[in-house]
Simulated scan of single mutants.
Amino acid sequence: MKNAAALSRTPVTGPVAGGSRARRGVRPGERETAPADLSTRDRVTQLLLERGPTTAAQLGTALGLSPAAIRRHLDAMLADGDVVARDQTVRGSRGRGRPAKVFALTEAGRGRCGTHHYDNMATAALRWIARTGGTEAVAAFAAEQVSALETRCRAAMEDAGDAPLARAEALAGALTAEGYAANASTIASGGQLCQHHCPVAHVAAEFPQLCEAETEVISRLVGTHVQRLATIAHGDGVCTTHIPAQSGSTVTTVRTDR
């Protein structure tokens, strides 16, 4: 939710960067890739950006590709360092056989989505603010950066009602419209708001005040205390915020990423 306009200057909505060899940023010595392959790889990248770690089968189903075709693209992305593969986390009892592999974007893969431009300048500016004004000045700057986004999200949530989980669902839709690839879902202990994209992850890694300001905004918008469980800035695959269940509330499954 950090203010991408002020810190990134690079829009994150619309097609993923990569429609041509020059836009994709092919590294020296990297093999040539056909335009059709680039288009499919861009779609794979966009899905991983929106959904976070995903299995090859899920990617193939979403894109209408055969297992062999999606595996070919994933193997190429693995070789280029754009994705990593790891065993899928299975909660509860698991059947026989090895767990499925999930694929997630690496830092380089996220960089191909047009993110992290101007990071060095933004980091230098915040370091200067910290030196001249202290950590309080950095926190004040972070709060100001998210204030305009808070106003826009609040306006988009006018008809969401007062229930925190319903407001989280509406907030996820508002954040997705802003380019944050967000979704909300319910779990046994309440709800979760997940953001699969952070335009200033590199900056927030050094200045956690940006994440703290964002968490405060989420709390105000959903109308209850929330807890940040994970952030992209700290190396997690997704920014995850827990919304505790309210006493007497009925938990139902709600997803906003479909």
Rank of each mutant, 00 (worst) to 15 (best):
V222F: 06
V222D: 06
V254W: 14
P199V: 11
A181Y: 09
A85E: 11
V200S: 01
P208Y: 09
R21H: 14
S8V: 08
W128N: 07
I129A: 09
I232L: 08
P11E: 08
V217G: 03
L78S: 06
A142S: 12
T10C: 03
A143T: 10
R96T: 15
G114K: 11
S189D: 13
P53D: 05
G95T: 15
G134Q: 07
V83W: 04
R152D: 14
D236S: 04
W128H: 14
R167L: 04
I70S: 01
A172S: 15
P199Y: 12
H117K: 07
G173S: 07
T33R: 15
V138Y: 10
A125G: 12
V138Q: 04
L210A: 04
G95V: 13
G97M: 09
A148C: 06
T61C: 01
H197G: 06
L193I: 10
A177M: 06
A139G: 00
A166G: 11
L165A: 06
R110G: 00
R152Q: 13
T40P: 02
A34F: 12
A68K: 13
M1T: 15
V26R: 12
C198H: 08
R94M: 13
Q227I: 03
P15L: 11
Q145A: 09
P11M: 08
T252G: 10
T231Q: 01
T253L: 14
V238D: 00
A79Q: 12
C113Y: 02
L7N: 03
S66H: 10
F207S: 03
V254M: 12
R131T: 03
V222M: 04
P28F: 09
S147E: 15
C153G: 06
N3R: 13
M1G: 14
T40I: 06
A201T: 06
A160H: 09
H202I: 01
Q227N: 12
P164K: 13
I218K: 02
R86P: 00
P199I: 07
T123W: 05
